[in-house]
Write a protein that binds this DNA or RNA. Structure first.
Lengths: 238, 238
DNA sequence: TTAGTTATAGTCATTTTGACTAGAACTGAT
DNA sequence: ATCAGTTCTAGTCAAAATGACTATAACTAA
């Protein structure tokens, strides 16, 4: 906590640096209650103090002096939700003057992907709850805008980059990859054409194994080889 | 400036919030000395104090409490270089622990494009100088990494987005657009094929006018209609 | 054994891309 | 006035990518 000397006058105080916070938008796929198909969800935490007391908000906290930005995001993620992300990337720094009614706050926001297995055993409690990404309701601060932007970024990254695999485990079927695309982009894709595209990308490796236990013809399992990394300080699996 | 009371002990001091700074990577096209073809340049400022005294660095300064992040970038840009950008977008927040030897600094970095007319009449002095983007030498802090990342982002945005036109004036020829691509991506493109692509994008509008005064057949002038805007707080022409 | 379902390969027409040709329209030199 | 040089611009053609679709393989459940 910053401590001002008693001689600090008003103007010195007013020009003090804005406080810095870290928040994270965490995405995971979970089966929809209705259709059972995977859909996009994110965890939110309930605010237990003013401002915006009792409203839902993105997990976050102040930046501690011992952590780099990414470490801070990673730590905060773990401490508030118990999750370990398979992907973590900086989203944007939000620094509008009136984001918080009480003080000037600059939030550096990260976005993360977690695998369904992780997401399934995530802490859910009175104050931590998962919401469908398209139905989060009214959030605290400017967090609705942040979630919206994170969704845009996720969709964009999915269409170009190689981020889809971080929703899945090490081995996956091509149909599972297609389901990720369908859930995130909210479209239906032709299975045959989609599979042709994936098979032409060199980073997807055929394994000799097949997914057993399904109701129909057992699909072949694949593996993703290749790193995402575009960020300047990306360590890809934080 | 933050003032600490004499009673602030070491741990309080150590946990004080990191200071926040704004920097900008400014790109412009200028004719190469050798070939005369446009190439990518950026202005740097000489540091007049420690650390890294006398080394070149990105223009920047502390975040003042009256400005939003983008306003701060815009203001700083103008005050240090005299430039008015045609495009300004947040690049990344750099917050490694040891970016500055003297204190913990989090820098929110923007990148900007300015038109050649602007760049030509930019202040250049003892302490402000333009460098070729691929030959900046050793810069202060982690600014080499930042410039590199900004270049990556510019190239990426150019390949997909609609950012090329911000290097040019309101009216331009298709060959000029091609020269932007060639300069930034450092390749040669087939004029006929490139032109076919541009003509198939609806945001490029044919005007009735032609660029006169050239040495050869006068090319038709075009106009770009359509806004870039992907950023959450983008005001596109700041 | 059969019906149902998903996995997977392949076909075919359309669109997009890359390499290239050729005429149009200007300037500057002869 | 003519011609050489250059860029602008439209067009051709084969190769590659895409979208819609068909057909067969391989499993489960009844």
């Amino acid at each position: 906590m910053t401590v001002y000397s008693s001689s600090a006058n008003v103007s010195e105080r007013a020009s003090a640096a804005p406080s810095l916070a870290i928040s994270t938008v965490i995405f995971a796929l979970r089966p929809s209650e209705s259709s059972g198909r995977p859909t996009l969800w994110l965890p939110l935490v309930r605010r237990i103090r003013e401002p915006y007391k009792d409203l839902w908000a993105l997990p976050g906290g102040p930046l501690t002096h011992v952590d780099s930005l990414q470490d801070a995001a990673s730590r905060n993620l773990r401490e508030t939700t118990g999750l370990t992300p398979s992907y973590l990337e900086q989203l944007y720094a939000f620094g509008g003057l009136h984001r918080s009614p009480t003080q000037r706050v600059v939030s550096i926001v990260y976005w993360a992907l977690v695998q369904p297995t992780e997401a399934a055993l995530a802490d859910e409690s009175e104050n931590v709850k998962w919401f469908r990404a398209d139905k989060v309701g009214d959030l605290a601060f400017d967090h609705n805008a942040i979630v919206e932007y994170a969704l845009r970024r996720l969709r964009n990254k999915l269409a170009y980059g190689s981020v889809a695999y971080h929703f899945l485990g090490e081995y996956f079927t091509l149909a599972q990859v297609r389901e990720v695309y369908e859930a995130v982009l909210d479209t239906r894709l032709d299975p045959a054409n989609f599979r042709r595209q994936l098979k032409s990308t060199p980073e997807i490796e055929e394994t000799g194994e097949y997914l057993q236990g399904g109701k129909h013809r057992p699909p072949r399992l694949y593996r993703f080889t290749g790193r995402p990394g575009l960020d300047p300080d990306n360590r890809s699996t934080p």
